[in-house]
Simulated assay, not measured.
Amino acid sequence: MYEARIETVMQNLARRGLSQMLVCDPRSIQYLTGAYVEPGERFLGLVLGEGRTPTLVYNEMFAVPADLACAVRTFNDTEDPLVPAADLCDPARPLGCDKNLAARFLIPLMERGAASGFVLASDVVDDARAHKSAEERDLMRTASRTNDAAMARFKELVREGVTEAEVAGQLEVVYRELGAQGHSFSPIVSFGANAADPHHEPDGTRLAPGDAVLFDVGCRQGEYCADMTRTFFFGEPTQKQREVYETVRRANEAAQRVVAPGVRFCDIDRAAREVIEEAGYGPYFTHRLGHQIGLDVHEPGDVSSVHEAPVEVGMCFSIEPGIYLPGEFGVRIEDLVIVTEDGCEALNAYPHELEVLG
């Protein structure tokens, strides 16, 4: 599996006119080798080169699997990590670098003449990661099924007077009880007017009758990420709340209907945005429609009005339209989808219908 992934990256490199690369993103290294290390301020790099054995350079204090799909070169805290890294590069050829190569390492490599030039080439790995294998798709399905089951339990935590922070603090326990490794990102729990802030951080706001209740949550399971948003109402919603909710629901479903190989990301965004604009809420849909997801909760390649590339089989991304009315309330409904041969598969089965709590 890892050998095939490395070969795909090498083919992508060749199309860029490159023959070697230094990969520093921890999740990309995990994708290519099976080893996940969070290096903090220390150097971590996988050196790939045409005709050469892929080699992981890492601090010996970290534990990695014994059966890695690559060679290893270690260093300790008193040694210069860039010595082995530079030794593994061909100074006569340009070096592809990924977006996580910090300046404190890049500039010394340049000064040492480790390569004839340095080229930002994150896309060669990002493109490989964007096309999920059958095994990866199953892992994404499993994580999303757990997220569905968790959502059914999260809403039971909602009661009058409870704070957003109190609810948010209980979510990880539920995830772990359901077999997940924990959160894939910091959860968003928003009550009332706070739901009009798309990235609100849970605080001491207490739930009151008539409030919208927004959960934007995700778990990590089998190392892959889930992400889903549902909006409820605590008590009978007003006519305006119902109208906004139904508009967002229709926008989500309209976008899912147009997903198919060859359809552009921007056209998927447009399908949802048109529904919201026609309902008169266009200015209140303030973000892109979605993002790709996998080992990271946000992976390169967004579903937005400016992304004109076509979607391809195996790509996985979110569809999350929203309407945010400052000082009043907000609604977002988010699902993950995988592009199939003739459309898309929604990974979330939790219903879209408006649900009243309390």
Rank of each mutant, 00 (worst) to 15 (best):
A4P: 02
A14C: 01
L18N: 04
V23S: 01
V23M: 01
R27W: 08
L32P: 10
T33E: 03
A35Y: 00
Y36L: 15
E38N: 14
E38Y: 12
E41D: 12
V47A: 13
E50Q: 15
G51W: 11
G51N: 06
P65S: 04
L68E: 05
R73K: 15
N76H: 06
D77M: 13
T78P: 00
A85H: 06
A86Q: 03
C89D: 03
A92I: 02
P94T: 10
D98T: 04
L106H: 08
L106R: 13
P108W: 07
L109Y: 02
A115F: 05
S116C: 08
V119M: 08
V124D: 10
V124C: 13
K132R: 11
A134K: 11
R137T: 13
M151Q: 14
E156G: 00
R159C: 09
R159V: 03
R159G: 06
V162C: 11
T163H: 06
V167S: 06
V173H: 07
Y175C: 02
A180W: 01
V189G: 10
E201L: 09
E201M: 09
E201S: 12
T205G: 05
R206V: 08
F234C: 03
T238F: 11
K240F: 01
R242I: 09
R242G: 09
E243R: 15
V244S: 11
T247C: 15
E253S: 06
A254C: 05
P261I: 05
F265C: 13
C266I: 04
E274K: 13
V275Y: 05
E277C: 13
Y281K: 03
Y281P: 09
Y281E: 05
T286Q: 12
H287M: 13
H287G: 00
R288V: 11
G290N: 07
L295H: 08
L295F: 14
H298Q: 11
P300I: 08
H307E: 14
G314C: 03
P321K: 10
P321H: 08
P326Y: 05
G330M: 08
E334F: 07
V339F: 05
T340F: 02
D342K: 14
G343I: 09
Y350Q: 11
